[in-house]
Design a protein around this nucleic acid. Sequence first.
DNA 1: CCTTTCAGATTACAAGCGTAGTCCTACGTA
DNA 2: TACGTAGGACTACGCTTGTAATCTGAAAGG
Lengths: 134, 134
Amino acid sequence: MNKKISPPKISQAELSVMEVLWAESPLPASDIAKALAAQKKWNIKTIKTLLSRLVDKQALSTTKDGRRYLYIPLISRESYATTAARTLSDRLFGGRAAPLVAHLAEGKGLSDEDIAELEVLLADLKGEGLKNER
Amino acid sequence: MNKKISPPKISQAELSVMEVLWAESPLPASDIAKALAAQKKWNIKTIKTLLSRLVDKQALSTTKDGRRYLYIPLISRESYATTAARTLSDRLFGGRAAPLVAHLAEGKGLSDEDIAELEVLLADLKGEGLKNER
DNA sequence: CCTTTCAGATTACAAGCGTAGTCCTACGTA
DNA sequence: TACGTAGGACTACGCTTGTAATCTGAAAGG
């Protein structure tokens, strides 16, 4: 039984950095700063701090490129999103998807596309269900 | 134009306390401790600290009952859940519900009931959609 | 009355987070 | 060769969070 490695906890600010690297990697800190400049007015130093912390947490790995580092995600956006979604759903909705979706719908209303997508998705899930059941 | 009051940020530990009060309120600290004793082995002092912080944040209000307080939620579970769901969906899924559900499905697989519930929900949403469109 | 005791108020204290600043060194440039 | 400079390493610092402990006053019990 291999002990489950706890997925590193990524903070809000750190997540912004991860997003950049999920979009493209490897990248040096300077490029990440450039990419973030639009949304956040962060000092490059701030970004470097976040990068170091992410490396500490093993959310990123680095490779040397001359005298600087290139950063690469160690955890995928996929897996992060899955964990986050599951955590929320468990914590607030008893792990059930329907109430969660209901809450999303509330107030804002899902678009027609959202609904269409969900229908397709449900159809797929039912197909899989069959496969697994049998 | 009334300024939107930012919903108080409730931390993990604080949320456990809120859950108790969402289930039943008003309650004194001692009863909350009793309710939490099963899941968390927290010192009553810890719970009182959390309660004070929640009052500070205006997530709870109090009424005197003799020499103690009774606590009552100022924000509903509903609204908290809605905000949390929306925040997650916006941050990680571009505000779209389908990918979020897809991620929930992944790995764990939604149960048949989940899927059934979602279908009903979608049907309802389509009904509303019509009403709104027209 | 005096003492134990329970509630809230105040204080503690380390780890995590947001946001940088300082130090030191290797590079490229005049 | 001397100098500014880009980068990483280390340090900083106030705020939040998790988790209590201590102080204080009032209530209850003997």
